[in-house]
């Protein structure tokens, strides 16, 4: 019994010393780590919003969760010298398989740019939505546009479904950003009669039409490094 208590105290003493040492290191490195994480985020978001200098996470601040099968993952206010200049939303939705898109929207409810982050569609067909020829056409469109393929969005031939899916994600994310900016940051308000949320989003990918080959071909390739 006596040895047990003695051993416990010895053990506790080592643990306390280790914890105190770690606390000091943590306090010393925490601001650096936060700055590095913020810088990484800024760099990744500046790809779509080159004008902004910093980004503030407002995901939990009533941006909405998306519409239909399209989910809003994260939302950031883009700031330049302390004033809000727009918003970046990361949304994921069904395309041929699924895509995750960053959508940058300015204060005038116009899209600044989009970037495909993850795209599990057919390589060489559906993945072409990430190329400037397709992704670039969204810039300077108003978020209240219809984003209808073959009308105001030029589809990729052979990948109509992917094109539609990405356009739908951009529409949902763009409107969410426009509405958030109008409500909270003094952005331009949606014109009268504009569609508000895109309640028809789920249907865009339900169309038939096998314009792409089997989705099973795009299973993740390249095994990751051994984990043990």
């Amino acid at each position: 019994m006596k040895t047990m208590i003695k051993l416990s105290f010895v053990m506790a003493a080592y643990a306390v010393v280790a914890c105190v040492a770690l606390a000091f290191v943590y306090i010393a490195t925490a601001p650096k780590i936060a700055a590095a994480a913020q810088e990484e985020l800024n760099a990744s978001l500046r790809v779509v919003f080159s004008d902004a200098s910093t980004f503030e996470d407002v995901t939990a601040d009533g941006v909405g969760s998306g519409a239909g099968q399209i989910a809003i993952d994260r939302a950031y206010l883009a700031k330049k010298d302390g004033t809000t200049v727009g918003m970046v939303i990361q949304a994921t939705g069904p395309t041929y398989k699924t895509s995750t898109v960053l959508v940058a929207v300015g204060m005038d409810r116009r899209i600044i740019g989009i970037k495909l982050l993850a795209n599990s569609d057919t390589p060489g067909l559906g993945t072409k939505t990430a190329e400037p020829g397709f992704a670039g056409q969204f810039a300077s469109k108003s978020v209240d546009d219809a984003f209808a393929v073959k009308a105001d969005v030029q589809a990729i031939s052979g990948a109509t479904i992917s094109s539609r899916g990405v356009a739908a994600i951009v529409r949902v994310a763009g409107r969410a950003a426009g509405n958030y900016l109008a409500a909270k940051a003094g952005g331009a308000v949606a014109p009268e009669g504009a569609a508000s949320g895109g309640s028809d989003d789920g249907s865009t990918d339900a169309d038939s039409g096998a314009s792409e080959d089997d989705a099973s071909t795009d299973a993740e390739s390249g095994a990751s490094e051994e984990a043990n």
Partner: peptide
């Protein structure tokens, strides 16, 4: 405990 403390120090410093 000792090894974990030093590993965490390395991890934090590298992250920073």
């Amino acid at each position: 405990i000792i090894i974990a403390a030093f590993t965490t120090i390395v991890d934090l410093v590298m992250k920073a």
